[in-house]
């Protein structure tokens, strides 16, 4: 088959004269770009499930300790600043929006807009980490360390209740691993931004943006649960 009636459509497959035209990004073991995209996306979803299961182990630890020592969680969570936690929630939600908008932009072929939105995402992730840095250093200054290093002093001795070290172990491990995921996301988005500037992406092929976006939304969802569980209740 040569020219088809839909040769004027935007898909590159129609622009080629021979039947087995390929987009330059299409690998030969895939039938079409769509199939390749769907396969990559399914693979990403499987990876994201393993991420959710990784965090669910820590949420289970939280649930067990909270059910055993509810009064400890009530007192010790008072050491966390709900304002900073809430601020970080808004920052991460906004970064999720900028990611979703960047995908919207590249789907409509607006590469420059996508690059700006990716930069905004990286900056918002940076704000999140800076706030987290101030939270952590404040905890360390007051001796609110995890586990056996727990040694609050001054007015913070009021948090020295039984099993408070376990609360801070759970807090630091959960927010620490979450923070590590934010740093990884920043690094990947930084790399994607350089590729975006070099013109690697267009409305036909933006799979890395889409998949990293999915990852970023999962990082956001983890924080959506961490914020109320740690700071509010």
């Amino acid at each position: 088959m040569a020219q088809t009636p839909t040769a004027t459509a935007t898909a590159p497959v129609e622009h080629e004269a021979h039947g087995h035209a390929h987009h330059p990004r299409q690998q030969h073991h895939f039938v079409s770009m769509d199939q390749q995209f769907d396969a990559a996306k399914l693979g990403m979803w499987l990876f994201l499930i393993t991420e959710i299961l990784l965090f669910s182990g820590m949420f289970v630890a939280y649930a067990v300790y909270r059910s055993w020592y509810p009064e400890t969680f009530d007192v010790a969570s008072g050491a966390l600043d709900p304002f900073l936690g809430g601020l970080n929630t808004l920052v991460l939600l906004t970064s999720s929006l900028t990611v979703a908008l960047s995908i919207n932009a590249i789907q409509r072929g607006k590469v420059k807009k996508m690059n700006w939105l990716l930069l905004a995402t990286i900056l918002l992730a940076g704000v999140f980490m800076v706030v987290k840095y101030f939270e952590y250093t404040a905890k360390f200054d007051h001796g609110l360390f995890p586990g056996e290093h727990f040694h609050p002093h001054g007015e913070y001795t009021k948090y020295d209740v039984p099993y408070a070290p376990q609360f801070f172990s759970i807090y630091f491990v959960m927010t620490g691993i979450h923070g590590f995921h934010v740093l990884v996301g920043m690094a990947v988005f930084g790399w994607l931004l350089t590729r975006g500037i070099r013109g690697h992406f267009n409305s036909e092929w933006y799979t890395p943006i889409e998949l990293t976006g999915l990852y970023w939304h999962v990082v956001d969802i983890i924080w959506i649960f961490l914020f109320p569980l740690m700071y509010l209740i």
Binding site: M1, T4, T6, T10, A11, V13, E14, S32, D34
Partner: peptide, 16 residues
């Protein structure tokens, strides 16, 4: 090929 082009002609494929 006809099939894939039809879905493209429809506009949005589910992946996009």
């Amino acid at each position: 090929d006809v099939h894939t082009q039809e879905t493209h002609a429809d506009g949005d494929h589910h992946g996009h």
